[in-house]
Design a protein around this nucleic acid. Structure first.
Lengths: 206, 206
DNA sequence: GTCTATATTGTGATAGAC
DNA sequence: GTCTATCACAATATAGAC
């Protein structure tokens, strides 16, 4: 059982992890060297090995942190007494807000999961995170609502697709659709909270 | 003006490019070494430099190839006489089919575009590819249809999101939703052609 | 056009002084 | 716990024989 959110007490260890988060998530595993992380943390390269032994182990901590900011945190919202439509609105709003606050994470996760699925599966297995069960709760919840004929699996893939891709593909979409105007794209992403909610609600209404 | 599809005549050059496509798109720029490409091509490492001088130049050819298989090829469909609903159905169907035949490309593009946007922008600029104009034709076409109040930019981002993410996020989605059953996910992706088309059509009907 | 050999720099990781 | 020094190897790239 690895602790995901809270990092260890030592101040140096913490600085290493913050630096590693920044560098790994920006450059990916292959694009990151221990030297780069050491520079970012302002410490000696050897200390990385002292605290984490290998690059792989340091990466594991960072990946679990990032993964936690990629998987929708919908447990609490689902157990509320709100009607299904409000639940979906809340989920989309909070999920997109989380992604907006962690913009570089989606592309990082998508890359690493494709680059080395085995490693990532092992990490998920040993982390206490169990997204399978996690999502299946959501699927049950969707089924409980009075919905049309949509397959809940398609519904959830639609939801995640519509929230994640505009962030992961931002450098391309912003350039193609907004002449690389960052402020305009930021506004566009805010608008999308309503757009996506509306689209999803429409898809489950009779 | 770089030629994107047709590769140069020399047999060796061709073998290098085929090997480079496979290795670069699978592992990304940072995860690829010249040695790896040489092994894949069954030739000497020095020959890569003889034909392409640098890793960067070899990558450029591969990226343009991949990019061409990532941007929706919708020019011909749009200029047809079909009603808008049929056009959308055709676009979604053909785009998803292309992605299904090039499954590793989406994650590759998303990673490289985030990893080094400057390099990619330069490549796009010097390639003759002009996705800005390209997409704007589509936006005009959407506006010509009798549509609700949806912003065409949201429409096109919805379309691309719904087609691309299920492929780019396959290793994760397949595992979470289908217990890593590849055949089941393949079926799921085929189903999505209709699901996505339906969702998009619904979004532009009054 | 294709190879071997090599130059140069960078990599992850460890040993050992303090 | 933090540093310097170092190892063994891999990286991109070039020179030069054939």
């Amino acid at each position: 059982m690895v602790n995901i959110i809270q990092f260890a007490p030592s101040s140096t260890e913490n600085r290493i992890l913050e630096a590693a988060k920044k560098v790994f998530i920006t450059n990916g595993f292959d694009g990151t060297s221990m030297q780069l992380i050491a520079n970012e943390a302002g410490i000696n390269k050897s200390l990385l090995h002292y605290y984490f032994r290998t690059k792989e182990k340091l990466f594991a901590s960072v990946f679990l942190y990032a993964f936690h900011h990629f998987v929708p945190q919908i447990r609490e919202i689902l157990s509320s007494d709100l009607p299904l439509s409000s639940k979906i609105e809340n989920i989309v709003g909070e999920y997109m807000e989380m992604l907006l606050n962690n913009e570089i994470i989606p592309a990082f996760i998508l890359h690493e999961i494709n680059r080395n699925p085995g490693r990532i599966y092992d990490l998920m297995q040993n982390s206490g995170l169990n997204p399978t069960l996690f999502i299946s709760n959501f699927l049950v919840e969707i089924r409980k609502g009075k919905i049309k004929s949509i397959d809940p699996k398609h519904f959830i893939v639609n939801l995640i697709s519509l929230c994640v891709f505009p962030i992961a593909g931002r450098p391309l979409m912003q350039r193609i659709l907004f002449a690389n105007d960052a402020a305009a794209y930021q506004l566009f992403l805010q608008e999308r909270k309503n757009i996506v909610t509306g689209l999803l609600l429409q898809s489950i209404q009779a």
